[in-house]
């Protein structure tokens, strides 16, 4: 393990970063977001993080009366970086899924937003148009019927989806037999490829897709088909924390309760996401 020894020596030289110690009441925390998932979280030209989750994070910190630093972290390294203490909380529209719960802990969801497809308006699926239906994957029969309806429309198409997401697991599970699936590091990258015509469909959260499609270069594209929630999508988007940080979990849950109760989540949601994603209890 020569490498780890070198790493150890060098990091002493560079100064270690000691993150918050578990159990005690934290006075300051670092919250990570992706900064590339507009309008949930994104980076502005002057390098600042902004969006629904950035506003919400600041609001929650105000309620908890602790100091918060918000940092950007690549999506695919999010969970490993949390577990090794690069930061204390993930707020990056991360779905609370069973798979992730094996490794980290989540607060209650602060948003529930279905995932769906975006395609060209003149494609077979595009002609179907938007449906406001939501299918819960737990209700297997009705969800399967909706998926079976979509399948023939996506036959032979290329679907772009972000890597290491529940969205990827969903398309892999239900559409890999009819369509080609391409994995992207960020949603911005699959947006570029949809605009370039390299892929035929995107599968992502409908609010994020709607924001992308509102840009002029996507005027030929539309949301199509129903939205899917539950099942492998889990309980919705929650704040991810380390398993041992139980105090922090209680504090965040309390703050989310308060932000739900006084309508802050709804206000921020309508401002950024153009629809209300407040979880229904």
């Amino acid at each position: 393990m020569k490498i780890s020894r070198i790493a150890a020596i060098a990091s002493v030289l560079f100064g270690l970063v000691q993150a918050a110690v578990a159990q005690e009441t934290p006075k300051a925390i670092t919250i990570a977001t992706e900064g590339a998932y507009a309008p949930w979280n994104f980076t502005t030209a002057d390098g600042k993080l902004d969006g629904f989750e950035v506003d919400l994070a600041n609001d929650l910190c105000g309620r908890m009366k602790i100091e918060c630093k918000i940092v950007a972290q690549d999506w695919d390294g999010m969970i490993p970086a949390l577990t090794v203490g690069k930061f204390d909380v993930i707020m990056a529209s991360m779905f609370i899924t069973e798979k992730r719960l094996k490794i980290i802990e989540f607060t209650q969801p602060y948003a529930v937003d279905p995932s769906g497809f975006a395609v060209a308006k003149d494609s077979e699926l595009g002609k179907l148009g938007i449906s406001n239906e939501r299918f819960k994957l737990e209700n297997e029969a009705s969800a399967q019927a909706a998926i079976d309806k979509l399948k023939p429309l996506l036959k032979g198409k290329i679907i772009g989806v972000q890597a290491a997401t529940a969205n990827l697991e969903f398309v892999k599970k239900y559409f890999s037999d009819v369509a080609e699936i391409r994995e992207y590091k960020t949603t911005e990258q699959h947006d570029l490829d949809l605009a370039a015509g390299r892929i035929d469909a995107l599968f992502a959260q409908q609010t994020a897709l709607a924001a992308t499609l509102s840009k002029p270069e996507f005027s030929d594209y539309t949301l199509a088909g129903p939205g899917f929630v539950g099942g492998l999508f889990g309980l919705g988007s929650g704040a991810g924390i380390r398993k041992e940080d139980t105090k922090l979990k209680d504090m965040l849950n309390g703050a989310i309760d308060a932000a739900t109760a006084d309508g802050t989540i709804k206000t921020l949601s309508l401002k950024w996401l153009k629809s209300d994603v407040t979880p229904v209890k």
Binding site: I3, S4, S11, Q18, V84
Partner: peptide, 25 residues
Amino acid sequence: LYYGGSVALTSLGHSLGGSGFVGVP
């Protein structure tokens, strides 16, 4: 180094009797 470095350092820290996490910027 990115994914493994901190894990190694954290376990090194624990073996030296420390607690908490060691992150590398």
